[in-house]
Design a binder for these strands. Structure first.
Lengths: 220, 220
DNA sequence: TAGCGTGACATACCGACGGTATGTGAATGT
DNA sequence: ACATTCACATACCGTCGGTATGTCACGCTA
């Protein structure tokens, strides 16, 4: 079975640590989770954690990196299913809003990320993971004249910020408690009436419509 | 001089505590500032702090409330200098981007706020302070047909998020260190006279231009 | 294959921090 | 005047992030 080689053990420990930390950070936020809880869930001790990461923030950085990679992958996959640059952009935005429905994305990537690592480092990581693709897509549309000539950076940050906030708003808890403490998954949805978690199912569509209108308006 | 009445002492202590906490939180972030440092700067002890606030987060809440009030006041003041609803909106947005040049606004209101109090409470406070005015302005423009008919909430959050991110991006440190550690108070109490800095003077103009274009595009 | 260096942890411990319980003296109502 | 309450100060506690040190298995070399 699993060969107990050094490299394998190392990788295994790191993976478990990141996975459990991700689960706990997403559930109760960075500040409310202690290292003791993390290492207990991972079945190791603090010694192991500090052997592989430089402290709590370092572990969080690894978690954030993983989350960002996954979001970026989902967005890229959605974009690549289209050929027209404009379609690629809108599809990517749609995929981002959809990916944000994951509570892990909201809490780790959008709420705790900037506060724990500082805004500039968070921005740099987001840039490397996904904002770069957004900027490239926009630049392409500017170059071929699809949207009005302008610098990409301001536009990129405006759109990026708009979508980040939209993700958090879309995930807001409904009138009833959405996840009082743990986003646990009981087999029975509260209201079997409606399909699934969009508390306000029209919000996603309306938000995407407004976003599309904003993008559309940039056409020259 | 100061009448040493109970109410006066109370108010004085609270004000000093909030002021010093605001300065320290803005300078090094919520997590890096201890209560001991705050109460020492305010010239009181932890007993006083816990007598007036319910813990560190409670003090931060009071600080955030103050910062949000000030930003909202500046935005409102800028908006009220115009009569045309459209001008009021754009002027308000411009004032918000300018108000964000204050490092206290960036760190306290935009970075630590959501992480410390949780996104939903932060959102509720922002809603009460300023986002409500944005929503009302947009609703007015929708009602009189200036911009396309649509729900206000998605639009409000998209614009709010866009501007929040824009503020942080505009304040990014230049190639040289902007504020090595302490952006601590120069002798000039608040605004030197110009909002301040821009490391990249064209960024603010370009961002405002892009934002205006986005708004303009919503016209029906 | 015996030995040995190194990597991958576990254990024990420390200082600091957020929070609480209790004491105290001045201001205030009666 | 006296009692009460308020606005703190003091002393203390549990927990947490971080560190120093110990230990044992793996893997390379001779």
């Amino acid at each position: 079975m699993g060969p107990t080689s050094r490299a394998h053990q190392r990788e295994q420990t790191i993976r478990t640590l990141v996975t459990e930390a991700r689960r706990l950070f997403a559930g109760r936020g960075y500040g409310a989770v202690g290292l003791a809880e993390i290492v207990a869930a991972a079945g190791v001790t603090k010694g192991a954690l500090y052997h592989h990461f430089d402290g709590k923030a370092g572990l969080f950085r690894a978690v954030l990196e993983q989350v960002q990679q996954e979001v970026a992958a989902r967005v890229a996959a959605a974009a690549e299913r289209h050929d027209d640059p404009w379609e690629r952009l809108t599809a990517g935005c749609r995929a981002f809003l959809a990916a944000g429905s994951d509570p892990e994305v909201q809490q780790i990537m959008l709420v705790d990320g900037p506060a724990v690592l500082g805004w500039s480092e968070w921005r740099a990581m987001d840039e490397a993971a996904s904002a770069r693709h957004l900027a490239e897509a926009l630049q392409g549309l500017i170059d071929d004249g699809t949207i009005a000539f302008q610098r990409v950076e301001p536009l990129t940050h405006l759109l990026s910020g708009a979508m980040n906030e939209a993700v958090l708003w879309l995930a807001r808890p409904g009138p009833d408690g959405d996840h009082p403490d743990h986003p646990d998954h009981p087999d029975h949805p509260d209201h079997p009436d409606h399909p699934d978690h969009p508390d306000h199912p029209r919000d996603l569509a309306d938000t995407m419509a407004a976003l599309t209108r904003m993008l559309e308006s940039l056409r020259s």
